[in-house]
């Protein structure tokens, strides 16, 4: 793992931290769900850097695609904002 990839990884970890804080602090559940999708996407790139392409393709399809869809259907039923 050379220094360029590590540098890129530290940049991506900043995105991860910001997305996690968005999930924590956002009162709008739509924003929180999209933040969790971003976390999954960054984790999928990390899996690719760690030489696990099988896990990366699965995480990209499931974590960023299907889980977001399921959560959005549930959010439609449960209400968009946290206060009610």
């Amino acid at each position: 793992m050379n220094n360029l990839i590590l540098f890129m990884g530290f940049g991506l970890s900043l995105v991860l931290v910001v997305a996690t804080f968005v999930v924590w602090l956002s009162k709008d559940l739509l924003v929180a769900i999209l933040g969790s999708a971003v976390v999954s996407l960054v984790a999928s790139i990390f899996f690719l850097i760690l030489q696990a392409p099988d896990v990366a393709i699965t995480e990209a399809a499931i974590g960023a695609g299907l889980t977001t869809g399921i959560l959005l259907y549930a959010m439609k039923k449960a209400g968009r904002y946290e206060d009610d």
Partner: peptide, 17 residues
């Protein structure tokens, strides 16, 4: 190649979605 049954099934389900 990377992949396999689980991501393939999920890709198909995403198409239906």
């Amino acid at each position: 190649t990377p992949g396999g049954g689980f991501p393939a099934g999920v890709v198909i389900a995403t198409g239906y979605f």
